[in-house]
Write a protein that binds this DNA or RNA. Sequence first.
DNA 1: TAATCGCATTGACGTGGATCAACAAGTCAG
DNA 2: CTGACTTGTTGATCCACGTCAATGCGATTA
Lengths: 250, 250
Amino acid sequence: MSSARTVRSEINLSVIKTACSNCNLNELCLPLGLSEEEMTRLDEMVTLRRKVRRGEHLYHAGQEFHAIYAIRTGFFKTDVLMGDGREQVTGFQMAGELLGLDGIGTETHSCNAIALEDSEVCAIPFSNLEEFSREIVTLQQHFHKVMSREIVRDHGVMLLLGTMRAEERLAAFLLNLSQRFTARGYSPADFYLRMTREEIGSYLGLKLETVSRLFSRFQEEGLLSVQQKHIRILDIAGLKKLMNPTRPEA
Amino acid sequence: MSSARTVRSEINLSVIKTACSNCNLNELCLPLGLSEEEMTRLDEMVTLRRKVRRGEHLYHAGQEFHAIYAIRTGFFKTDVLMGDGREQVTGFQMAGELLGLDGIGTETHSCNAIALEDSEVCAIPFSNLEEFSREIVTLQQHFHKVMSREIVRDHGVMLLLGTMRAEERLAAFLLNLSQRFTARGYSPADFYLRMTREEIGSYLGLKLETVSRLFSRFQEEGLLSVQQKHIRILDIAGLKKLMNPTRPEA
DNA sequence: TAATCGCATTGACGTGGATCAACAAGTCAG
DNA sequence: CTGACTTGTTGATCCACGTCAATGCGATTA
């Protein structure tokens, strides 16, 4: 149906045409809720696939913005850097999630997006996205929801950073990962972390030593089994209780 | 030109029709960038004015979402509450800024919006906003930018909460307020805080005593003059230097 | 002008997490 | 397999900020 899928062989192999309509992520990603017909129209949107290898940037802070990226496979972190080198990780993103929303406002990316494992993304030129979302109401609504949910997620992180204690933060973090892995069909209780202790710490506003100690303590307490990056959650309820301590008095 | 502005006298006075085209805030608010003709079309959008008195909620977390609110006059805070009563203030909003973006994703507000002084907002039914932004490209683009900037702002708060020390946080907070007052034509250096020390502390991830002590210290150091809620910034450069300490070594 | 109330200031002291430091365990190149 | 390097663990100590408590101050009402 779309002759645009023909790829001239001399083109860089890491940049190839892709189609939402036969992507198994479309239930998690931008096309959610679109009819088959709308989805094939979405395919017309010039979406290029791009490979990003572990450690490489998908985009840099300061770089000009022109596309939103949907993660096809892999795992990313986004961060912002302070003048003196301090880093704040603002999020970890996995398959089906969008990257680059931060760039719309100023037409310049405001953070760095770095692959934590070899990954593949679909690039969606933003002008196309805006054009299509004027025509396809479902797409417009869904896109607005995605942005709004990002804002709500950020508020959750503020709550975490502003008012939770270290152990609550790590528990919240693990439960969040668990839930997202589940949504992707992976085990809720058994997974490999793609990020270092330092990156976890940066995200949670803690130092890597504190994160490491907490992992050890959670293990001692029978909540987790930890072998470096391999985590098994042994007591989900216990973790949840850590996060939501019933108020001491009253 | 718009007969819709006729107000039946029996209608609750706190809910009256309003028009963007003769609002002096339109350079800061949603209509930014619209042509005169587009602006008059925007007026057709059923925008109702609503008064919210000091201490009252504009909306509650959990309440059903149907409108975005543009602040006409006044000052708000938004916050999220934890099960055990801990509060995280997620932002302070002033004239021309939008409230309610958090509700789009789930069609339910995820935070509380509370007036810190007697205020007035314009309610913009979200379905209308989506409809109009399908027709008016400028409006669509501007709305997307506003949402994106909210995300970027939130990342800034994460940076603040996750990696800055107490004095850096307060300096950043004051400079941010100063800049926003300036954009509204007020003095960059002389203003009244509308929020308590506790609310500032909640926003900055600090306790009210720490905030109070920092105000005192900044005053001793000649950076500020503080008399309760009346702040005069005496040394903007000094505050900026506090926020961006040149790295000690290297 | 006194009484009440909410908010702000200040001091004394305690502590959660940071810092500093040593070491262990992976990982990768050759 | 070896050595170099990155990442993770653990202990000892420190300190920025929290906690607890007393006092002050300004606004409001009587």
